[in-house]
Design a binder for these strands. Structure first.
Lengths: 228, 228
DNA sequence: GGATGTGAACGACTTCACAGCG
DNA sequence: CGCTGTGAAGTCGTTCACATCC
């Protein structure tokens, strides 16, 4: 009665690559910042500059980037272009990811409206909801469908990622249906802990937990500043 | 040119309590699950049961709960009631937290609609937006105000937490205004890294990063399951 | 000089394993 | 006997410091 066998809490374990899990989150930040700098015409950047912009130490940046290979030039820094390409390839977003969304409330609409996703290779392929009043409605050019159409449409579109934005009490059921339809990764916004087979990857974003974490930090910190 | 001095990436450091940062997130999960069990009439629970429900090992649960004091009874388990009280006190949500939201788009509306927050002691005290078309509109019983009213209203309401749900290019400016108005903690949803003075706590929820993390895990894991 | 890449030290978190209590 | 609390061991992630290269 202990070792969890299905994917636990917040993100499921990966293979045996040598990257620290934490660094993957930073890769996304590096990438976004670099793309911005590139648009501004910058071509070269050092670990110190990158770190300063993101609130990370230079050593950490170098350790992270070393996973991508020896891209840096001593005395110079990194070529933004090269880094961007390497990061996109490493993260697996050098291709399209067809994504479906279940539960088309305000949260889903916020996601659908955010244009940053397509730029990073995510393409919304279908929307689902149980509410008969919503079915048939078009959001962002996509028609909302009933859950009964899910298995078929996921197969037709070849969607691999699913976003769950339904109330907590419906989330596990929706997750099961997504898994049954062949989805390979789930992004869960419902305030509940999902159990998935270990072949399906899970990332959970629990807004209630985040807000409580903030309250805790403020509660704890009271007046004192941080630092050593 | 290295050690970041303002609050970095995803969550700002706290004081010197002995709790691991990671465990704080789990505390919220414990609390929510326990409250549910309580509503179902359960009174006693063991570390193994709690862990199983949340995908955590029993040892981890005991280590976490030990920070709250010696609440467990060997051979029996924990009293749900006692745990809930201790968790709420520990997290600092045994009181009200007046919270303001800036940027009233779909994301903000999703938060405002979620009833779980008030149950945990969060009370939305005011809403702000720059869009003249939205100012004056009522959402969830609250009137949307312009940013110019922010400093005054935050002081009047005594709000301590601020949620940023504006586009990336406006986020830092909004954060500065919140800090100037005396806010003590910021929950940032904008896809950018904020810099805040070290007296102000920060929790960042970067949806683009989460989705990319999921793609990475699927990309990486390809077919193989997890396990050792 | 300026910046990278990296072993080694350090620190944080998790799991093990078991004594001890109800 | 079942379950807690906790040192000890183990694992993971970050920082330091420096040899190395342009």
């Amino acid at each position: 009665m202990s070792k969890p066998d299905t994917s636990p809490a917040s993100a499921s374990n990966g293979g045996e690559h040598k990257v620290s899990r934490a660094s993957v989150g930073r890769f996304s930040l590096y990438l976004r910042h670099l793309e911005r700098l590139q648009r501004e015409g910058l071509q070269t950047i050092s670990s110190g500059q990158l770190g300063d912009a993101l609130g990370i130490t230079d050593a950490q940046v170098r350790k992270d980037l070393a996973y991508l290979g020896s891209l840096g030039q001593p005395g110079i820094g990194y070529q933004a272009r090269e880094l961007v390409d390497a990061l996109r390839a490493y993260l697996g977003i050098d291709r399209q990811w067809a994504t479906v969304v279940v539960g088309i409330g305000n949260l889903a609409r916020a996601l659908l409206r955010y244009r940053g996703f397509e730029r990073q290779g995510f393409r919304f392929a279908a929307l689902f909801d149980t509410d008969p009043a919503k079915i048939g409605e078009r959001v962002d050019g996509l028609e909302i469908r009933g859950l009964d159409a899910m298995a078929r449409i996921i197969k037709e579109t070849g969607a691999e990622l699913g976003v769950i934005a339904v109330p907590a009490d419906a989330a596990q059921e929706v997750a099961n249906a997504l898994v049954a339809a062949g989805i390979r990764g789930v992004l869960n916004f419902a305030p509940t802990v999902l159990r998935l087979p270990s072949t399906v990857r899970l990332v959970a974003v629990d807004l209630a937990v985040q807000l409580e974490q903030l309250a805790f930090l403020v509660h704890l910190g009271q007046d004192k500043p941080i630092g050593p």
